[in-house]
Amino acid sequence: MKTLYGIQYLRAFAALAVVFFHAAERSGGHFRIGAAGVDVFFVISGFIMWTMSERRPVTPLRFVLDRLQRIAPSYWIVTAIMIGGAVVGLFPNLKLTTSHIFGSLLFIPLRSPNDSNEIWPVLVQGWTLNFEMFFYVIFAACLFLPQRLRLGSLIGVFVAFVIAGVIIHPQSPLLVTYTRPIILEFVAGAVLGQLWLKGNIPGFGLGLALMVAAIGGFAAIEILSLEFNEITCGPLAIALVLGMVSVERSGRLPQIAPLTYLGNGSYSIYLWHTLAISVVVKLAASTPIPSDVVAFLGAIAGTVLGIFAYELVEKPLRNLLRNFSWRRARPSPA
């Protein structure tokens, strides 16, 4: 599948939004709307998974293995760094339990020993990966079905989970996670992917209007301190992704190399940025530097660390695992 530059741009902006959200939060500032980058990521994930599977058919097992190979190694490395840092005292406020460590590594939602009200892994931002893995498992199961039934089945399963959550009000971390309405953002992305493949998307004018409306909606939530959750941010994220792919389909979207690169490195930026932000905030704690400046410096440091991790960790790991998989997949000589 050819590169969709608009999707890469959105991945870049979503990652940077989350970076600035955490940088502001940890320096005593405020950029709440940056967390909506997660909603954009989820819609994009559904879009990419659907279009990839439709254009390049794959078995359910191969799909799951490919997703694990793409997601897990970098996440495990950062989680190991967090655990090691806590053990030697670098993160004195981080409490560890055996069950929480294993749950984090296996993408099982558990309540954090640091805050029992939150369902967080050791690496806090890894909570989104619990949703991603859930989506991958259900998506892989739908690949067993005839092609014509997959999208409807995917929608039905996710809607059923959300309805079940509304009815039973679950308390277990597993069911609380998997019945949140935010999971519908993956399905919405898959629907957008199907519309894109069929060519049933708006033209340039309406696509641009959708993007402007979405960005305006996000800005209004931040400026007016409106209610912030997947119910308000989900539709805006869907409109933003639909608008972007519509503009790109029109052929009027410029190719911006730096944004494409940041989009490629967005996963590493997302995973690693909080480590650098924590260092910057700690170094600035005893200085008179204003919190806004600390947040900006932390965001820059977090982004730079993510880029280094992309080049030095993610890409080499991906190439290594790809070569390993290729060798194992080759038929034995007669």
Rank of each mutant, 00 (worst) to 15 (best):
Y136V: 12
P290K: 04
S53L: 11
T179E: 05
L65T: 13
R327Q: 12
R32M: 14
R249L: 00
L61W: 15
S74R: 00
N114H: 07
I33A: 08
V304L: 14
L297F: 05
L154R: 06
W127N: 10
V58W: 03
G203A: 08
N114S: 13
I182R: 07
R111W: 02
G34M: 04
E25S: 14
G29D: 08
L317D: 01
R62N: 14
S153G: 13
D66R: 15
L68T: 11
F20R: 02
A160D: 12
R249D: 03
L175M: 14
P202L: 07
V191G: 03
I119T: 05
F186V: 11
G193A: 10
N130S: 14
N229T: 10
V38D: 06
I269V: 13
S246H: 08
V18H: 07
Q147I: 14
A12C: 09
M1T: 14
V293E: 00
V280A: 00
V281C: 00
K2I: 14
T260G: 08
F102C: 04
P146C: 05
W76K: 01
G234S: 06
G28A: 04
A141H: 08
I48P: 05
P92N: 12
M82W: 09
V281Y: 00
T59S: 15
L10H: 05
A220C: 03
E314F: 07
P254I: 12
I307A: 08
F107Q: 03
A190F: 03
K95H: 13
S286F: 01
S104P: 09
K95I: 05
L210M: 10
A12T: 03
H273F: 03
I48F: 11
S225E: 12
G205C: 06
A257D: 01
A72I: 04
A213L: 14
R330V: 04
L174M: 09
Q194D: 15
I108K: 00
L197N: 05
T51V: 15
S153V: 13
